[in-house]
């Protein structure tokens, strides 16, 4: 009887030890994380310099309409009259009609600025992230059209399902404080 009693208290003692240890470890870990400035939340973003515009973003996102949209670095744009991001290379004419344009949803819209320049703007509500325009711009233009994850739509899944299939491994975790990797290169003396 006494032995049984003893055993029980020993088990209780071990359990108390484990609990105390767990409490100390847990509070230590949470405290360390809270104190560390690196523990900022991360979000997913496309590194536009790695992206090869393969078009998987459009179909791989968990959202029905991909969170990836085309963006435009206006400072890099040539404001061309004939935009290779807008018009297909194997088109039959230069009119903005379904048979000539790259964009399957007419999300890229053009407006006149001054002779001979035109401005190209992406309508994000229409853009489905197929990267056809940015592919065209990269191939023949200045590469000012590029793909980005838009954080007003992104659910920030713990495992981005686009990152999983991205052939260029261009989708990376970035700190939530600077959630975009934009394509206007900052220059100063390096």
């Amino acid at each position: 009887m006494a032995a049984a009693e003893n055993k029980k208290t020993r088990r209780e003692f071990i359990a108390d030890g484990i609990r105390t240890g767990g409490l100390i470890i847990a509070s230590g870990a949470i405290g360390a994380l809270a104190a560390s400035s690196h523990a900022e939340d991360t979000v997913w973003q496309i590194d536009p310099y790695k992206c090869t515009n393969c078009g998987l973003c459009a179909t791989s996102c968990v959202l029905d309409q991909s969170t990836v949209k085309c963006m435009h670095a206006f400072a890099m744009c040539g404001y061309c009259n004939l935009c290779s991001g807008m018009l297909r290379p194997e088109r039959v004419g230069n009119t903005i009609e379904a048979e000539n344009v790259q964009c399957p949803t007419f999300a890229i819209q053009r407006s006149y600025v001054e002779n001979p320049y035109f401005q190209y703007v992406i309508d994000e509500n229409l853009c489905i992230g197929c990267a056809k325009c940015s592919k065209g711009c990269d191939a023949f233009g200045n590469g000012s059209l590029f793909m980005q994850i838009r954080h007003d739509r992104c659910l920030n899944c713990n495992q981005c399902s686009i990152a999983e299939v991205c052939p260029a491994q261009a989708i990376v975790r970035v700190p939530a404080g600077k959630p975009y990797l934009l394509k206007s290169k900052i220059k100063q003396d390096g």
Binding site: K185, I186, K187, D189
Partner: peptide, 11 residues
């Protein structure tokens, strides 16, 4: 020049 380079970038 780009805003990020400016008119006095060179040391």
């Amino acid at each position: 020049v780009g805003d990020d380079t400016g008119f006095a970038a060179q040391t």
